[in-house]
Nucleic acid binder design. Sequence first.
DNA 1: CTGAAAGCGCTTACAG
DNA 2: CTGAAAGCGCTTACAG
Lengths: 353, 353
Amino acid sequence: METSADNFFFGLLPFTVYFRIMPATIKDIAQSLGISPSTVSRALNDHPQIKDETKKAVREMARKLHYSVNQAASGLRTNKTFSLGVVVPQISNYFFSSVLGGMQKVASENDYQLLICQTNEKEDEELRYVQSLVSGRVDGLLMSISQETQNFDRLAEILSDTPVVLFDRTSEKIPTIHVEAEDYRGAYLATRHLISRGPGKIAHLGGPRKLTVSQNRLRGYKDALEENNISFDPGLLAHCEFDIKKVPEAVDKILAAHPEVKGIFAVNDEIAIEAILALKKKNIRIPEDIAVVGFGDYPIARIVEPNLTTISHYPAKIGERATHHLLKLINHREEAAVMKEVIPCELINRDSA
Amino acid sequence: METSADNFFFGLLPFTVYFRIMPATIKDIAQSLGISPSTVSRALNDHPQIKDETKKAVREMARKLHYSVNQAASGLRTNKTFSLGVVVPQISNYFFSSVLGGMQKVASENDYQLLICQTNEKEDEELRYVQSLVSGRVDGLLMSISQETQNFDRLAEILSDTPVVLFDRTSEKIPTIHVEAEDYRGAYLATRHLISRGPGKIAHLGGPRKLTVSQNRLRGYKDALEENNISFDPGLLAHCEFDIKKVPEAVDKILAAHPEVKGIFAVNDEIAIEAILALKKKNIRIPEDIAVVGFGDYPIARIVEPNLTTISHYPAKIGERATHHLLKLINHREEAAVMKEVIPCELINRDSA
DNA sequence: CTGAAAGCGCTTACAG
DNA sequence: CTGAAAGCGCTTACAG
């Protein structure tokens, strides 16, 4: 076994002194070939007026010299960076990391790269990142607004000069393309599913009130109740702010006001699963005594017992569509519009409801 | 309720025609203030020889004109991009997304941004991204090698000119700073924990053979056995390639060869949990009949029943340390060394073993 | 089909 | 303490 000194450094092997070899430029290629930099540039960009022979020679030499275009220089000249900025509240989160996966796919298919920033739900960090990305670093921005953000004026102002697509956490104060999950309809389906199991009260564990996501899911819940002639009872609603630590208390609150509750719809799977854990601790049977439906179809949904019935909202798809729209915005600026695309949700029927 | 037409577009609100307002430049500030661009640049960069008065005026005007530095231009001139490239096999994965979170934190504290690419475990995509990042886009690279990668020559060649730190998926063929979890010791601890529960055979569900991560965890397992005078039995080893679909078969294979097995150590939590699910289907009690230990302390570990005993390896910390090393490499190139930092692991004792 | 020249927005040695 | 000038590596109208 290795020693405990392993805990830190080991193996300080022979020093390597880095010296950054100056990368080859267009000028180097031109010189080695005895032609002009202009021609090299054109050949590299497959300009139609350059002889195939010349192109071939240039490409070969470029390979030989390990040439790769200097993006800063090219970007400075053309005002294109082939980078997209992404601003999310948190990277390490099932939903957002899946969205990022979808974005990366579409971006990469179109030879774009992603500059990803994490706001930690802080308004000032958000503003800082947006500012920095917009300053010549990216051709456009994909953004999901932080929870804390109150003042959209500055943001809207900065973004008015830049193609931007909002996803998931959107705001009407920033008029552009919005891509969202079908939050309203998903919540409606979830609640209807709970109602369909038989008569009884249905509670809702809601998310942060400020977020449109929470609001839309709450609306879906309320409308499903209404459609079934069940009047909305505020005592059946508790907000957990996406904070799983608040769940046991929220469940207690609901149970105290309405011990006879028979279904809970939670704003996301993490909250739903925490609720299941809390209910099980009280020896409440799921779904016999209380049924639970989540939102998101996180990997944990198929691990918890009973397996969580939930709404899948296809985060990778959200990322793909948002990126698709942004690239269209960048490439045909004149067609830019204020609009919303809603990605369909689906009820995944498992054992918790 | 909204109509099903919502599934796609809706709300094609008033068209907005974007026209990118040319952002203010240093020249604009200079003109409005009647001073030279040189002075503006110096003032903005807080050059010591500029009068405080001038600095103040310049900063005020910069704010008024919504000036922000053009990174492409500044980068072209100074050969600094203040961006770090990150190349990972997959973004939407608990381990990597947590590592990214840690990287983002340290990068942002040092005014660096992250350009993140996902290789999908493909050697050619990996090469393509590295190539592109290195071409003047980033000051350094953080990288976790894809499973498929066989040929390190080209990679090593490209990277020899660029500061690079490898994390988690490393290779000695790329001699630089490596940051890894304490895979060997974690596996050792996990296996020792299983052995300590009493006499009996301990199996291992291993990862992709090519990965050093898998190799180190396998070594830890073997050494723990050896230290307890248990000889290694290949019939107790099955490889699942990080593919949860292969787990039931692997469990069957082990159980067929050794029905009396009493502990399983899995290469990661996903595999461990899939094994628990498979065992439960066979009405095998956990941990009474067979105990299970995972690796990684994923969120699912505290949800599965029984709660998974596992090894925590602190992915965010791995990301933080890797970034820290890269920034040091970038800022004091001469101190660059070939070395390895190992982030300590810890046994998280829950109910599955 | 190719070249010479200008210029993208910045930084920085050089000069004063 | 400030300015004029050169130049980073590229692209592209202009000229031939």
